[in-house]
Amino acid sequence: MAPTDDDKDDVLLAGRYGDLDDIREFVSKFGSEPLAEIRDENDNCILHMVCGNGHLDILEYLLPLVPSSLLAAQNSAKSTPLHWAALNKHLSVVQRLVEYPDGPGIDLIDIKNAAGHTPIGEAELAEWDEGATWLVKMMNLDAEDAEKEKGDAENVEDDEIGVPQDIEVEIEDAEGEVARMTISDSGASKSS
């Protein structure tokens, strides 16, 4: 027996409001397979509802039941469940999504939504420093990126890293006379 549209709506609402018993009842009646296909009018899946509302207990229940690809499911705004968890400041949910051994892992952090934001960007927009910091620590910096950053650091010009440079200043007085001055590490010298 397949779930009706009302059954589908009910299980999404159960995910949103944290009703684990209703979700268990749905699974016992219809199996876990329909959970991966159910979407609301904005293309949100059960994990969007659960993660956006911080229901870690339901997330733990669902993770072994749904395909790992559902962790990266994007809604009509291209946001993933991780975007929603970050936007709503649910650290334990964010951590579980990223650290789930059978899921996409840290690759989730790099997914951009339609606004061009990663989950880190959503955390920053929500002024959630704790979550943004944790996500940055987990980011996927591969060897190529690390080499590029190292090379960029080696190629920084001296004036960019605080080595004193000479500064030339021109000052015009009330009579229109211009005085030029060079300020250097050894002191100022005046020339006219």
Rank of each mutant, 00 (worst) to 15 (best):
D102Y: 08
I120C: 10
G54C: 03
I106P: 02
T80C: 11
A86I: 03
S76Y: 08
R16V: 01
L82T: 00
S69Q: 13
W84N: 07
I111S: 04
I120F: 06
N44K: 06
K29L: 13
L91W: 05
E60N: 13
L97A: 10
D21N: 13
V66C: 07
C51M: 10
L59E: 02
Q95F: 14
W84C: 04
A14K: 02
Y100I: 04
E25F: 05
Y17Q: 06
D110L: 12
P64N: 00
W84Y: 07
I109L: 10
Y17E: 09
Y100K: 03
Q95V: 06
R24M: 07
Q95C: 06
A73D: 09
G15T: 02
A72N: 09
D107Y: 12
F30G: 01
P101R: 09
L71H: 07
V93I: 07
L20V: 11
A14S: 11
F30I: 01
P119V: 02
L13R: 12
H83V: 05
H83Q: 03
E25M: 08
L63R: 14
I120L: 12
C45T: 15
P34H: 04
P81N: 01
N88Q: 09
D19S: 14
N42V: 01
L63K: 12
V98N: 13
F26D: 00
D21F: 05
D21R: 10
L62T: 01
R96M: 14
A73R: 08
G54R: 02
E25I: 04
A86F: 14
R24V: 04
T80W: 10
A72G: 14
G103M: 10
S76N: 12
K29M: 12
N88F: 11
D40Q: 08
P81K: 01
V94M: 14
E41M: 15
H117C: 13
I38R: 01
L108W: 10
V66T: 08
N113C: 14
W84T: 01
L63V: 03
I38L: 01
V94H: 00
N113D: 15
I120S: 04
I58S: 05
E99D: 15
T118K: 10
E99R: 13
D21C: 07
L35K: 10
T80R: 04
I58E: 03
G103Y: 11
E41F: 15
I38H: 01
D57C: 09
V50L: 07
L82Y: 06
Q95D: 11
I58H: 10
L47Q: 09
A114W: 00
H83C: 07
L71C: 13
E60H: 13
D19E: 14
P64Y: 00
V27E: 04
F26W: 02
F30Y: 15
D110C: 07
E37H: 09
A114D: 14
D19K: 15
H117Q: 10
K29P: 00
P119K: 05
I46F: 06
W84K: 08
P119W: 01
